[in-house]
Amino acid sequence: MNSRPIPDSDLHAYLDGELSAERHADVAARLANHPEAARRVEAYRAQKQALRRLFDPVLDEPLPDGLKALAAPPRSAPARWLPAWSLQRIAASLAIALVGAAAGWLAHDQYRPPSLAGQPPPLPHQAAVAHVVYSPDVKRPVEIGAEHEELLVTWLSKRLGTTVRPPRLGAVGYELIGGRLLPGNSGPVAQFMYHDASGQRLTLYVSTENTANRDTAFRFAREGPVNVFYWIDGKFGYAISGGMPKDELARIATAVYDQFQKN
């Protein structure tokens, strides 16, 4: 009787303590006659132990402040953690915006769609795709170059139906290369491209398609190799994409945010 093959599911249930005492003893007895099954059980047991060895040290790590803060009920917008100085500046800007939009915020906090499936791709994803498509282009990264900036502004503003002007990022070491028009989910969107002294490129994606109006927090997303900071301000959605590290991109995104707040 002990030579009957042991079903796979019993091996796992045996190892994980899911069997009744009687069946546990039965499997244990049969394993003696099934060395191959016994070896597998031991291999799975070793996996379990190794997973604990590998990940248990995380339990002893100090908790990031951003997470600790989130253990308490949020008082206002759910902010992503950023360097403290940029958070303060953003908080100051948001405080002003919040005065007029308190009702909207409450609605936002209460409601989030359960799933993004079936909806158009979200802003950071679109922006990141546009970034990886155009930023590596050596010969034609933009449609209209920075040398014709006024033409670029006039053209994009006309197509988007609202004034869209590229921010100046010289203070954070980035210079405008130019811009282009792109198709968004339902109409045109603008992309501005910048580079620094080393040739590192970043793109600013400006959409005017936001109608859901459900998010104005400064948020971070990673799309493969591309880091994206984005926020939504009224009908405008802004996304800064680049391959640089998160904190450097946060510095640039804050500069962009500040300039659009002034407009």
């Binding site: 997973l51 995380v58 990031p64 997470l67 989030r112």
Partner: peptide
């Protein structure tokens, strides 16, 4: 939180992706 972070680290791979995931989880939980 420590256990959520441990699970997220193992699931998502990197510390940064894991903590972003835990953060999103807490935001949504609230």
């Amino acid at each position: 939180l420590p256990r959520l972070r441990r699970y997220a680290r193992a699931l998502a791979g990197s510390r940064e992706a894991a903590d972003d995931l835990v953060q999103d989880t807490l935001e949504r939980a609230w």
